[in-house]
Design a protein around this nucleic acid. Sequence first.
DNA 1: TTGTGTTTTACGACCTCC
DNA 2: GGAGGTCGTAAAACACAA
Length: 220
Amino acid sequence: MDNQNVDDHNLLLISQMYPNVYTPLVPQQAGEAKPARRRKRKSKSVAVAEEGGAEGSGWFRKRKLSDEQVRMLEISFEDDHKLESERKDRLASELGLDPRQVAVWFQNRRARWKNKRVEDEYTKIKNAYETTVVEKCRLDSEVLHLKEQLYEAEREIQRLAQRVEGTLSNSPISSSVTIEANHATPFFGDYDIGFDGEVDENLLYSSDYIDGLEWMSQFM
DNA sequence: TTGTGTTTTACGACCTCC
DNA sequence: GGAGGTCGTAAAACACAA
């Protein structure tokens, strides 16, 4: 008996033991238990041509497993995704299935599990990407805002410096204030204020210092 | 009812491991 | 070389809108 025949023989036994579970659509010849044949893969057109009614064909109709069978298989799958032959045979006999069906179910289940894992992975990466894009937008906008502030501060300093230059050039203390004449636009650190000692360059970045210049300009 | 999309069962081809 | 794995796909079963 070759493998296929052994398989077929087992299928027949199973279908006899569990008529409500595994039902081959093989017409029984009078007085002869014809071995059930596994449905062969074939083109739809061939299948339809051969069929003349499914009952009359020699092929198994594909059956959905019962909820209980699927539940037990799921439990077993949770336990271990791999299926060693001892467990396969045990499950098969417990559930009234062909061991081959159990093996196929596990193969398909593993494929579904893998697909789901890939899908989950994709979702995770996508979410991380979206979060990063939002954060980048926030930072871009912050940079823009800071640049605007810096630009305003520079303009204010320039404006004040021009006023200081204009005022001091006509005042007696102008001799103690030197502004580099060749600087078209005086900028941070370009001042050399002599009347009260030195001014730290860093102070020029401080809003307090800018406010102070504004206050000072009132008296000029 | 029927057309259509999705899920489930099953298989063949091919690969890996022992 | 055989057993059991993945991968791709056919086909039945099922869900559901029109």
